[in-house]
Design a protein around this nucleic acid. Structure first.
Lengths: 323, 323
DNA sequence: ATCACTTTTGCAATCGATTGCAAAGAAGCG
DNA sequence: CGCTTCTTTGCAATCGATTGCAAAAGTGAT
């Protein structure tokens, strides 16, 4: 920057202001400076800028999946969400720093800001860390989380309305005149529990649950196979906590020649591509990841600017398809 | 840091060295400093550190898909790759800055380093930007790209052996005694072209290609439907350029009651989860994303340290499944 | 030409670390 | 005890911007 200043014959301060398009600088001067800067292809040094401004225009993204093996992001849903968050941030000239859960957690979340040099954090999935997040909020670190709502959250959580999603599925099963629905999914996973509860609420009674240990295709397939082979009566409708689990169930049913949807109607959750691509196409509950990304970012920016932001419950809708 | 120095009764320089675990500092002093630093939960300011060190320990990840609508990362393969790159970098204490293609390209790739403050760049997919990348390499910016090999690349590209992948598929079709194979995929997409060429090489003659405009499920499904309805003779083996396209083809075949694999054997590419979950399970060519991530990172680190690194061709293998 | 304003520019401090070099302290040896 | 050598520590410059405040230049009215 010194060089540019010398070349143009002004001071460093003037160059800095010109590059920021400050109204303090005369248009003519500004033009001259920008000209020279461009032709010498100079760009401001981000590190120096960050230091001086005490702000990095970068936010940290922490994806935490204690439930997934080896921290692999298998679920396409999260991928979509991620991409949309990145886009929403890019639109605001902010960058995304991907913090692996290991490294993020190593220094403790409260150090993440100074440590990684980010202005705020987006947590995807708060599952096991609720109390830590509460503490974080107390310290005043700007962050938002994607996940399920809970009354005792003193921080901003954005999530889709899992209760509503469950209810929509119940409505569909009722419309299809199903009598004996079953829920497929793990217990203790807060978002999935809410889907199940929403269903029960709307259905008017508790729902039988085929419990599985994780969210994977194979686990669900095996669980459903075991159920089918156990001789228990077949439900006439199955609500799976996610599309991946639904696909597992569908695979099992095909293997045992259960007609879908004739013998058993199936609903998934997430509207992942594979749900659409399956034949018969899987009925599922859609979460609007584009909106989700936009809202997460908007709230976080609010918070960074010092204005508290309330949690948001995003709408969901049922995509009726063949199953 | 000044505060910590005062608290311990040493100079700032000593604190800085102690925190870096420098051998210059006596163990006893070091311990005292670390103690105080921790109890005051002090962490070094990343921005200042970056500025002084002229290094950020952060690499930029640019995912560029001119071919995908709205910059959506629909393909699970890239998601996997991404996760594995992040893990490989985390293992080396490096962070990942996700650069959206828009913002990355806006300032021009050559400014990405200073502009975003990253030490190097990983490009996923070089498709349209070959000449820009050549220029980048000339300027001496450290980067690696994931993609297809080409002779005129003066930069380090890591990619899987698409030619080999194509050959493996040809071998399988021959083993299955198929006579009239067809290739499904777009033309002009360098990696997919290589897959097709590898097939033709091994098969011993060119292969008929059902050309599609993009990589999507629907486009492939529709193309295959149109083919089936056109009355042309059905191929007895179909090699799709990606799993997603293969799934589209399978959907079309199911709709027209073509028996797979009896009437037509099908191979995909990528080993995406949906390939495994489909029934019948899709035969596909696996790319080892974990290895890919590790190699990309290792090469980039090499280059950042000033040692040139050669391109790498990663092995692939065929996963034989029902189709 | 002087004065009061307004518009532009520059000076110099500052952000928070890292590091070369010199100095202080400790240890070893004759 | 004096001298050399090695181990520890501190001083102060430096990385490359941003910004409050003061100074200079320009404008217009008297």
């Amino acid at each position: 920057m010194d060089d540019i200043a010398r070349l143009v014959g002004v001071s460093k301060a003037t160059v800095s202001r010109a590059l920021q398009d400050s109204p303090l600088i005369a248009d003519e001067t500004k033009k001259r400076i920008l000209e020279v800067a461009r032709s010498n292809n100079y760009v401001v040094n981000r590190s120096a800028q960050n230091l001086r401004r005490r702000r990095t225009d970068t936010i940290g993204l922490v994806i935490d999946f204690p439930s997934l093996p080896e921290h692999r992001l298998s679920d396409p849903f999260h991928f979509e969400l991620l991409g949309n968050i990145a886009n929403a941030l890019a639109a605001r000239q902010q960058d995304v720093l991907w913090c692996s859960p290991q490294s993020a957690h190593a220094g403790g979340f409260e150090n993440l800001l100074a440590n990684k040099g980010v202005d705020g954090i987006i947590f995807i999935g708060q599952s096991g860390h609720h109390s830590e997040l509460r503490a974080l909020a107390k310290v005043g670190i700007p962050f938002v989380v994607w996940g399920a709502h809970r009354d005792d959250a003193n921080y901003c959580v954005v999530g889709s309305d899992n209760l509503l999603g469950g209810r929509l599925v119940a409505q569909r099963f009722r419309k299809l005149k199903r009598k004996r629905p079953m829920f497929l999914g793990p217990k203790g996973h807060i978002e999935i529990d809410q889907r199940c509860n929403g269903f029960a609420q709307e259905w008017g009674s508790t729902i039988e649950q085929l419990e599985v240990a994780d969210l994977s295709f194979m686990t669900s397939r095996n669980a459903v196979l075991a159920w089918l082979d156990s001789g228990k009566t077949l439900p006439d409708a199955l609500f799976a906590g996610s599309d991946t689990m639904a696909m597992g169930a569908l695979a099992a049913m095909r293997e045992r020649n259960i007609e879908v949807p004739a013998a058993c109607s199936v609903c998934g959750y997430d509207d992942s591509p594979s749900a659409l691509h399956h034949s018969p196409a899987l009925t599922t509950v859609r979460q609007d990841t584009r909106l989700a990304g936009a809202v997460l970012v908007e709230r976080l920016v609010q918070i960074i600017q010092g204005n508290p932001a309330a949690s948001v419950l995003l709408p969901t809708d049922l995509i009726e398809r063949a199953t």
